[in-house]
């Protein structure tokens, strides 16, 4: 039983990790409606920035979020402005996907060029210490990630519901043409959304950096899992992505123990496919209909 509880705890912590990556992705995917294959590389860039800043200035990696999140916001906004926006009118939506594939390849290899294939270790500054909940061991850093994910979800929800900008974003997501008629600058909204999505990952990367060794390829694993969480939670739904991530974290941890660590990916992706096919609006069903996503 202790083992089971420990696995569940591990799964939830892992879910928190996925959540903080997935929340930014669901914004971009749900609102700009672009598959951002470079999202994992955004995380990687953020982790390297956090590593450089915390080792260079000898500060706690969490503090680097103050610089990393804005930097990632700029990266995201530039991506939308320079790469995606010129392609929004393209007849073939495929080209956007390939554009982000190109960005992902370029960023990953740029990291390889600068940092080499070796791992980089961000100093832990105590976040690898443990707390005991009964018999269950949890890392403080993981708790912080989960807490940050919750705070991020609540914060974004408030932003979307209560602020003018947030409402404009939601209006654009639901009907771009109508939003434009109402005087919303949809291009600006997309740039803003992409930036916010990337900034969320920036925040996440400062929290993840002290927990995991950073390498140029770390993003590739996260990006596919993050897409799974996003679809599971219902496209564009921020709380959905969060709960989707918790579910995937649990599934991952439980299947790793009970089925075998070599098959856990197969389990996760099979669940993803079943959801896509049987309940494409996601586990936590939003009203958005997938068939209207593509033009």
């Amino acid at each position: 039983m202790d083992t089971f509880l420990q696995i569940v705890a591990n799964g939830l912590m892992l879910g928190g990790l996925f959540a903080i990556v997935a929340v930014g992705l669901t914004l971009i995917f749900g609102i700009v409606k672009v598959i951002n294959f470079a999202h994992g590389e955004f995380l990687m860039v953020g982790m390297y920035l956090s590593f450089l800043l915390s080792t260079g200035l000898d500060v706690h990696p969490y503090l680097t979020a103050a610089a990393v999140a804005p930097a990632l916001f700029v990266l995201g906004a530039l991506t939308q402005r320079l790469l995606i926006q010129p392609l929004m009118s393209a007849r073939d939506e495929h080209v956007q996907i390939f554009a982000t594939v190109g960005l992902s390849t370029a960023l990953m290899n740029l990291a390889l060029l600068i940092f080499g294939a070796d791992i980089a270790n961000t100093p832990a500054h105590g976040v690898r210490s443990q707390v005991m909940l009964g018999e269950v061991r949890i890392l403080t850093g993981q708790l912080w990630v989960l807490a940050a994910a919750v705070a991020l979800v609540i914060g974004l929800q408030l932003f979307m519901k209560k602020t003018r900008t947030g409402r404009a974003i939601r209006a654009t997501a639901q009907n771009r043409a109508a939003a434009r008629l109402m005087g919303i600058n949809d291009k600006f909204i997309y740039i803003l959304t992409f930036g916010i999505g990337a900034a969320c990952v920036g925040l996440g990367s400062s929290l993840i950096a002290p927990l995991y060794p950073t390498s140029p390829t770390i993003g590739t694993y996260f990006v596919l899992i993050a897409f799974v969480c996003v679809v599971l939670g219902g496209l564009g739904s921020i709380p959905g992505a969060f709960f989707g991530a918790l579910v995937i974290g649990l599934v991952d941890a439980l299947s790793g123990f009970y089925i075998g660590s070599d098959l856990r990916e197969a389990v996760v992706f099979t669940i993803f496919l079943l959801i896509l096919i049987l309940k494409p609006s996601g586990l936590f069903g939003t009203r958005m209909n997938l068939s209207h996503v593509s033009p």
Partner: peptide
Amino acid sequence: PCFRLHGPFFALATIAFLEVFRVLALH
């Protein structure tokens, strides 16, 4: 089952299938 999915979702589904095939081939 994937044809009811459009655009990006179809692409993601094919990627997921590919991953499953790869893991099964390893297994």
